[in-house]
Amino acid sequence: MTERIGILAGWEQSFPQAFIDRCNKVPGIHAEFAKIGGTPERFVSPYRVLVDRISQEVKHYRFYLKAAALGGAYVINDPFWWSADDKFFGYSLASRLGVATPRTVMLPQKDYIPAIDKSRSLRNLEYPLNWEAIVDYVKFPAILKPADGGGWKDVSVVRTPAELLRAYNDSNLNVMTLQEFIDFDDYARCICIGRERVLTIQYDPKQIGPTGLRGRYIFRDQERWLPQDQHDRIVNDALRLNHALGYDMNSVEFAIKDGVPYAIDFTNPAPDMHIEHLGQRFFDTVTDWMVEFCVKAAKEGRTIRDRYAWSKMAAEVDPIRWDRST
């Protein structure tokens, strides 16, 4: 019996094609770019596993993946939790897990769509904001950034109350977070696969990468890069975050200051896996890990429904310990 694996991707080329080619070398596996058309309300998924690299940009795909999960597919990443997550939730979750995070405050939107009547629809908002208390908690310098954003879009470094108010007034419809600025000594980006494997790579978010985007991997002898205790803590914290989030494919970034790795960015369920950025060595590693994980999930017949059946039982037995992991 042949198990089918589908991948949804947009403009990226290197990872999706390499993933398909390597999956198809495994006996009993057929991988392809998933084909999606009109979808009935109830169907059996033609794919045992679906890898999602694009639904954050295509709403139709996200809706389909939720239905496919009900139809028996194992979707990577879980479309239900991916839809629910945001950056600020991630910081709240990490702090409860005991993972070091910068001090962070979520701020109300500066502006709203025309349908919102500010005099009637926003009665629950504190006004004016207690800026003094907010700044006293976070301290300067700080980072003002969207609570659900990424890719350094609409991010500002603010060092004074005047700079903060100016940047906040320009934030328009975004829900923003004000976060402690970690003037890091070192920085790590981890590519995490299957909630079991973590590839830790030195990274510089300040540099411009080979394709013109912000951020560059630093290629060196990784075994001699970090002290063992820091490396072990980063790997352990990355695994804890991915188990709590239920992500099987993610990148987790740590800013290291005075020996402490602070989790900075870790809700990236379609992480950078381009060969142009990772280089051949790291690209081969994460691609092979993804192939192994997806093939195993397909052959074992895993489904998203199994995860929620387990979670429901766990919640009934011990609601204090229940989380999203399986």
Rank of each mutant, 00 (worst) to 15 (best):
Val155Met: 05
Ala167Met: 05
Pro114Val: 04
Tyr137Thr: 12
Asp136Arg: 15
Arg159Gln: 09
Leu144Gly: 08
Trp131Tyr: 13
Ile116Ala: 12
Arg159Ser: 07
Asn130Tyr: 10
Ser119Lys: 15
Leu165Phe: 10
Ala167Trp: 04
Asn172Phe: 13
Val135Ala: 11
Ser121Ile: 01
Tyr127Leu: 11
Gly151Ser: 12
Ala115Pro: 00
Pro114Tyr: 07
Asp154Lys: 15
Phe181Gln: 06
Val158Gln: 02
Asp86Met: 00
Ala100Met: 06
Ala115Gly: 05
Phe140Asp: 10
Asn174Thr: 01
Arg120Trp: 08
Asp86Cys: 07
Asp117Cys: 09
Arg103Gln: 12
Met106Gln: 14
Ala94Asp: 06
Glu163Lys: 04
Leu165Trp: 05
Gly90Trp: 00
Ala147Leu: 05
Pro146Thr: 07
Gly98Glu: 03
Leu129Gln: 14
Ala133Met: 02
Phe140Glu: 05
Met176Asp: 11
Ile116Glu: 09
Arg159Asp: 00
Tyr168Glu: 07
Arg166Ile: 02
Glu132His: 09
Lys118Ala: 09
Asp154Ser: 11
Lys139Ser: 07
Asn172Glu: 11
Asn124Ser: 13
Trp152Ala: 15
Arg96Pro: 00
Pro128Asn: 08
Leu93Arg: 08
Arg103His: 04
Ile113His: 14
Leu125His: 13
Glu163His: 06
Asn172Met: 08
Arg123Asn: 12
Leu144Ser: 09
Asn130Trp: 02
Gly90Met: 03
Val105Tyr: 01
Ala162Val: 13
Tyr127Val: 14
Ala133Glu: 13
Pro141Cys: 05
Phe140Asn: 06
Val135Pro: 02
Arg166Leu: 08
Asp170Ser: 13
Pro146Val: 08
Glu180Cys: 04
Asp117Gln: 11
Val175Glu: 10
Tyr112Pro: 07
Leu165Arg: 14
Ser171Trp: 03
Arg103Leu: 04
Tyr137Cys: 08
Ser171Val: 03
Thr101Ile: 15
Ala100Gly: 00
Tyr127Ser: 13
Leu165Ile: 09
Leu173Lys: 06
Val99Asn: 10
Trp152Arg: 12
Met176Gln: 15
Arg103Phe: 02
Asp148His: 06
Lys87Arg: 11
Thr177Ile: 15
Asn130Arg: 15
Val155Gln: 09
Ala94Tyr: 08
Leu173Val: 12
Glu163Pro: 06
Thr160Tyr: 00
Asp117Arg: 14
Ala162Tyr: 10
Arg96Val: 05
Leu173Cys: 01
Pro114Asp: 10
Leu129Ser: 09
Gln109Lys: 15
Pro108Tyr: 01
Ala162Leu: 11
